[in-house]
Simulated assay, not measured.
Amino acid sequence: MEYKTYVSVTVHFTAQGRMIPSSIEWEDGRVYEIDKILDVRPAASLKAGGNGIRYVCLIQGRRRHLYYENPRWFVPRKGLE
């Protein structure tokens, strides 16, 4: 089971208005730089629920999904059970 973990995101806006996330701040205050954006598209998070703009990111060599669900950002995370 996955659930939404809401995170703070540092975002760069291009002159054309496009959002480009550059780092995420985890709930415990750790900051992770986004090394590369691999894909951006409207999509649903089927396991965690919700939909918005899905960013497929490379963070510390690992592929992660980051969602912008206006007005908040979340990362799907596996449950502890």
Rank of each mutant, 00 (worst) to 15 (best):
M1K: 06
E2K: 12
Y3L: 08
K4D: 02
K4C: 11
K4S: 06
T5R: 14
T5D: 07
T5H: 05
T5C: 15
Y6L: 15
Y6D: 10
Y6A: 14
V7C: 04
S8R: 06
V9R: 02
V9M: 03
T10K: 03
T10N: 15
T10G: 08
V11I: 11
H12L: 09
H12A: 05
F13N: 06
F13P: 08
F13Y: 12
F13R: 10
T14C: 03
T14N: 07
T14R: 05
A15F: 04
A15R: 12
A15P: 08
Q16K: 13
G17C: 07
R18K: 13
R18L: 05
M19A: 14
M19S: 14
M19K: 11
M19D: 03
I20N: 06
I20W: 01
I20E: 11
P21M: 05
P21A: 01
S22Q: 11
S22H: 02
S22V: 09
S23N: 05
S23R: 05
S23Y: 00
I24E: 04
I24N: 00
I24Y: 00
I24L: 09
E25L: 01
E25V: 09
W26K: 09
W26I: 13
E27M: 15
E27I: 06
E27W: 08
G29W: 01
R30I: 06
R30P: 04
R30E: 12
V31F: 01
V31H: 02
V31N: 05
Y32L: 13
Y32A: 15
E33T: 08
E33F: 00
I34L: 01
I34G: 01
I34R: 01
D35H: 15
D35M: 07
D35V: 10
D35Q: 13
K36P: 14
D39L: 07
D39I: 02
D39R: 03
V40H: 08
R41T: 15
R41H: 15
R41W: 10
R41S: 15
P42G: 09
P42C: 03
A43H: 08
A43K: 04
A43M: 03
A44Q: 12
S45G: 14
S45E: 11
L46Y: 05
L46S: 12
K47M: 07
K47T: 11
G49V: 05
G49N: 08
G50E: 01
G50K: 05
N51A: 09
N51S: 14
N51Q: 12
G52V: 03
I53W: 02
R54N: 13
R54Q: 10
Y55N: 04
Y55W: 00
Y55S: 02
V56T: 13
C57G: 07
L58C: 13
L58W: 01
Q60H: 15
Q60D: 12
G61N: 07
G61M: 06
R62L: 04
R64Y: 11
L66A: 04
Y67T: 09
Y68I: 10
Y68L: 12
Y68H: 06
E69M: 13
N70W: 07
N70F: 04
P71Y: 03
P71L: 11
R72T: 09
R72H: 07
R72I: 15
R72Y: 14
W73C: 07
W73A: 02
W73R: 02
F74G: 13
V75W: 00
P76I: 01
P76D: 01
P76S: 12
R77S: 11
K78M: 07
G79Q: 15
G79T: 06
L80A: 10
L80I: 07
E81L: 13
E81S: 06
E81G: 14
